[in-house]
Design a protein around this nucleic acid. Structure first.
Lengths: 147, 147
DNA sequence: CGAATTTCAGTGGAACTGAAATTT
DNA sequence: CAAATTTCAGTTACACTGAAATTC
């Protein structure tokens, strides 16, 4: 790796993210799932029924791609699309029992991948890394904190 | 952002990397360049003439894609392909004067993007972040340190 | 012969765009 | 009428595969 790239935080960030993405993707693949599907289930579990547009905004996923993801999840009975009575343009998307169960199962696999990613760091270093990364994410995507 | 994702380092890493990649890409676009082209020029400047396969290995770029990148750079007179006398399977790729000059100009733009990415962090925090990220990159890609 | 290098042709998934239909 | 939501059709950039030709 040339000095020029090795000194670039943006390069370091990308290259630190890649192995983690792969590990997580592999874990999900063992259950036939993908990251975006897991993310959608996570939003639905925590924030109750929401519209597709809100889903996309929360996860920075394009409106078109949300449609495709939901088609798959709906076909597998993991989410439901109901008409929103208060605004008939919207669908009220909610997670099903089966969706919640699968989400819980996926959590365990995610934790495993997580540990593999952070293996070279101590507990306090992991906390510090998380803190710094959250600051960056929040700064570049206002209103992206938890809850 | 749901708690589940917000607590995932791999998610944080990806999402912290994205705005940086965009900023850097935009800076490069102003000179009609892309990240991979900059990376190739950086390797050539620092490590002198190397084969295409070595280039690809250093940057984790596929053999096929290196061909395309070099075609563009060669057309613009930024790199040269010479036959390697010691191993006639290889091309000896080297950076030209024009390539070096452009690289220096790009460096300034990269620094600017870099500052925008790390804006919310203090100097010591930036150093700490770099240290942690390097540990992760090195661990997941053995032999990827500087020099 | 097996292995490495360069090259091309093509595949598959991911991010994104544009436009239509509906409703606010 | 302007704006928002869902949907579909299509495009573009990108990582990767497979195979051929050459050389070690």
């Amino acid at each position: 790796v040339p000095q020029r790239l090795w000194c670039l935080s943006s390069w370091l960030l990308s290259n630190a993210a890649i192995p983690g993405s792969r590990l997580v993707a592999n874990e999900f693949a063992r259950s036939g799932m993908r990251r975006d599907q897991y993310a959608v289930l996570a939003v639905l579990e925590e924030f109750g029924p929401v519209s597709q547009a809100t889903l996309g905004r929360r996860l920075s996923i394009d409106r078109s791609d949300i449609v495709a993801v939901l088609n798959g999840l709906e076909r597998d009975g993991l989410v439901r699309r109901d008409p929103d009575k208060r605004d008939r343009r919207r669908n009220a998307i909610s997670i099903t029992r089966a969706g919640s169960r699968l989400l819980t199962k996926l959590d365990a696999q995610v934790i495993r991948a997580q540990d593999a990613v952070l293996e070279p760091l101590s507990d306090s270093e992991r906390q510090e890394l998380d803190r710094l990364l959250r600051r960056l994410v929040e700064h570049h995507r206002p209103g992206s904190g938890p809850t």
